[in-house]
Design a binder for these strands. Sequence first.
DNA 1: GCAGTTGCTGGAAACGCTTCCTGGGCGGAG
DNA 2: CTCCGCCCAGGAAGCGTTTCCAGCAACTGC
Lengths: 346, 346
Amino acid sequence: MTVDGFSSQPGRVNMREVAERAGVAMSSVSRVLSDHPDVSKDMRKRVMAAVEELGYEPNLLAQSLRRQQTRTVGFAIGDISNPLFADIVAAAETRFREAGYSLLLTNSEGRSELDAAHIGLLAQRRVDGIILSVSDEHNPAMLHALGRLDIPVVVLDRNVDVGRSLHVYTDHQAGMRNAVNHLLDLGHRRIAMINGQPMRPVNERRAALEACYADRGLERTYQILEGGALSDVDYGSRATSQLLSRPDPPTAIIAGGNQLMLGALRVLHARGIRLGKQVSFVGCDDIPISELYDPPISVVRRDNLAIGRCAAEMMLDALRDPEYRADMVLPTEFVGRPSCGRAPGS
Amino acid sequence: MTVDGFSSQPGRVNMREVAERAGVAMSSVSRVLSDHPDVSKDMRKRVMAAVEELGYEPNLLAQSLRRQQTRTVGFAIGDISNPLFADIVAAAETRFREAGYSLLLTNSEGRSELDAAHIGLLAQRRVDGIILSVSDEHNPAMLHALGRLDIPVVVLDRNVDVGRSLHVYTDHQAGMRNAVNHLLDLGHRRIAMINGQPMRPVNERRAALEACYADRGLERTYQILEGGALSDVDYGSRATSQLLSRPDPPTAIIAGGNQLMLGALRVLHARGIRLGKQVSFVGCDDIPISELYDPPISVVRRDNLAIGRCAAEMMLDALRDPEYRADMVLPTEFVGRPSCGRAPGS
DNA sequence: GCAGTTGCTGGAAACGCTTCCTGGGCGGAG
DNA sequence: CTCCGCCCAGGAAGCGTTTCCAGCAACTGC
């Protein structure tokens, strides 16, 4: 903590002091610490001794400035309290930590003007790359900010393709088709889908629903509610209330996204509706409640952790090789549970 | 590196180029941009024009190095995928963003050796402060790392008091006493508590249980299982299985922590045990499932977001005033729901 | 014995900013 | 008219690293 008794900042020893202590040049200290090959055994020993004695720890800030890389990745996320993103962040953090990278996290609370601001901020902080999940694919400020970047960007499940962008998509369609077909097989025709405002996952889910009807040559007797934010629990509730109070209520409801599912369940639960009997129900994302609800809830499941790992892996590849470019599609799976039953009167 | 209009890094204009463009000294540019009072109207206009034309954005890294402050706060958390922490992080991020601070996030996955490493890492990155939730209050490496710091540390609900530390505690006892008294009033005597390995929240909950029995002069007919990590769902399951298969199983189970509660519910649910009849149940943290479970589950609730806000606020105060020191205790509340019923045969 | 490596080290110039210090111009007071 | 002080601008020294370059000694090969 002290150098010969004195140090301006307690515990803040710099490389110059180490060099003096070891009686060598700063450049030599630097070489030792960064494992440069041109270092003699003796030099290494003297420097390491001085480092040890002084408790020296390099200043990563100065290193970053000089090296022009921060070993930091920005994570611009829509809503960290959504368990989906929490899982993604957790998985990515693990992978990045192993690789010596740190995570700078921003949360946009679903406000797309913040997305743009955060991209700019992360750029100013000179992160080496950004993992991005925006709340509006078309926000011009966001796209502009993205266009100015010269670092790799891994985009999570959004159709945003500006600059050096790689993509981790989720194949919502596959799982959702199975879900819809399951409902159709059970005789449901008036299926309602509660969805967020249009963007990739929402579009995919809608497309799956439409395709299933089209494939069977059925009339378009489904309905789709879009407009709320994907992580707006209350919108899920409102939409559900609205659906249930129609003269001709749906016999099955599909909630796109785990937060909308929660909102929907609140209303269904409050009204004492028995899922799989009066109304069948399919949710998205296998959060704990889906299994433990009574009855257990059918969901379109994806592997949250895999998304995070995959995003991190792609980012690390892109960081190593500036030419690296990739898109990846991760699967979804329909998990049938008792919340889906035969349509009333079929 | 640059020749009048060309720059090796596209979009990376530095202050020198701005100064040249405006025909002034770098120091003047700096003064304009940091709102220094000694700047003439004319100067401001010329500099701002140049900034605009070149699309200059200051390099926060260089700024941090020079100013000796990063406007970054480190968040060393045990498990980000625990919804409690996700909420805390979300709330804190909001507050920090407003104040111009960014968040550097680390996740320890409940491994306390990582806690120590992360504290060191954050220090090397020269964060201005750290918000900390460690998984072992007594880990020596962690305490040592903490002792070396000269920045404020806001400790979340842990009895760790090293260096410049402030505290945000949760008053688990109050809520838990109400919970236990409620169970005792319902005639339960064989109450089991599933708890994590000893640290502040765990100790508090245990103390509440013990105190309630003592206050009523009751024999110690409760039992306490401690040992798993607080966010280990499987431990919750194992402990519950074990309790239920005893010759003399408890009539009421209390799960400390939302993850332990999930694990417990999995087992109870799988065994088809009707809560409030055969076994009464109290959980911790009001996660969505507690309200939507059948029957709804009694919990000891706290305000997750308030914890995050409070931690951020304390940190900001400590950042402004090096002398600032504070401890805060946030309340908990018992929410009674039908998962608690009369003890069988009482 | 000498040029050409090879192996290691030190000096110094960046990286992009802030800030202290110096000093020029100018208005008001003596 | 001079002096003092004020307002504003420029120069330069750092913040703590890395890395390029030069240099020196010792060795190799001829």
